[in-house]
Structures are given as structure tokens and as C-alpha cells.
């Protein structure tokens, strides 16, 4: 972890798994309290940033799948680590069954990815 901090400090940024750079300008200057905040961010940023990369890849995969399969279901929201779709009842079973594997197939990590699916008449019920 110290190495992370050191490398982040000398480069001024950390990287996500996919190479996105997250800059932390406060790492190398300013008051100690701010710097400690930035050091914590240096540890968290690769994880949060990689999660952002994954959900973006998931959107691309899901949209590609919906279009390719000629489905009428539509992506309607992206919030935090969640994708929300509006799905005709005729496509419900297929989308519920196949959506998680599309989301989990976007990257091969050393641990499996997992997506939990919920269904309902409104967002809260599905959430």
C-alpha cells in the first residue's frame, strides 16, 4: 500500500485496471490533512474507477446484445453500479436470464463478477 502511495505521489495519478488515469493533485502538496485525504483516495480510486469502467463496458455489451438480438427492451438508467431497463413482458424471461451473464462477461478478473437482477412494476420494486 505504501508503494501505491509512493507511485501515485511521484506520477500524480493512479490507474484503473483498464488504464484510465485518475489524477490526485493534492497528493504531493498542501496541508497534511488534505494530503492524507488524497492518500486514501489513491487507494480507493483504482477500485472505484475500475468499477466505473466495468459498468461502462456493461452498457456497451448490453446495448450491443439488445440491438443484435432485435429485442425491444431498452436501457433507461445507469446509477452507481446498477443498470435499469424497461422490458416488454414478452421479453422478460429472456432478459432476466441473459442480462447478468452479459454484464459479468465484460472482463475476466481473478474473481468472478456477479450481477443481481430484480424485476418489478417500478424501480424500487426491481431494485
Amino acid at each position: 500500500m505504501n508503494r501505491t502511495r509512493e507511485a501515485a505521489r511521484s506520477q500524480g495519478y493512479v490507474e484503473t485496471l483498464f488504464g484510465r488515469r485518475l489524477y490526485l493533485p493534492e497528493l504531493s502538496g498542501g496541508a497534511p490533512a488534505r494530503r492524507q485525504g488524497a492518500e486514501r483516495a489513491a487507494i480507493n480510486a483504482p477500485m472505484q474507477g475500475t468499477a466505473a469502467d466495468l459498468i461502462k463496458l456493461a452498457m456497451i455489451a448490453v446495448r450491443g446484445w439488445l440491438d443484435g438480438a432485435g429485442l425491444k427492451s431498452r436501457l433507461i438508467m445507469q446509477v452507481h453500479d446498477e443498470l435499469v431497463l424497461e422490458v416488454p413482458e414478452s421479453e422478460l424471461k429472456r432478459v432476466r436470464d441473459e442480462l447478468p451473464e452479459k454484464m459479468c462477461g465484460v472482463a475476466a478478473l481473478r474473481v468472478p463478477l456477479k450481477a443481481e437482477v430484480g424485476v418489478g412494476p417500478n424501480w424500487e420494486a426491481a431494485h
Binding site: L17, A51, L85, V95, P100, M103
Partner: peptide
């Protein structure tokens, strides 16, 4: 936040994504 008649809302959430990363 509701669905049109004849439709449902499906939500898919990455589980423990940051821990997995």
C-alpha cells in the same frame, strides 16, 4: 419511476464490485 403498460422494470446491480476488484 415506473414502466409503460405491458412492460416491467428490470434492475441489474453488480454485487460487491469494489471488493471483487
Amino acid at each position: 419511476f415506473i414502466a409503460e403498460p405491458g412492460c416491467v422494470i428490470i434492475s441489474a446491480d453488480y454485487s460487491q464490485i469494489e471488493l471483487r476488484i
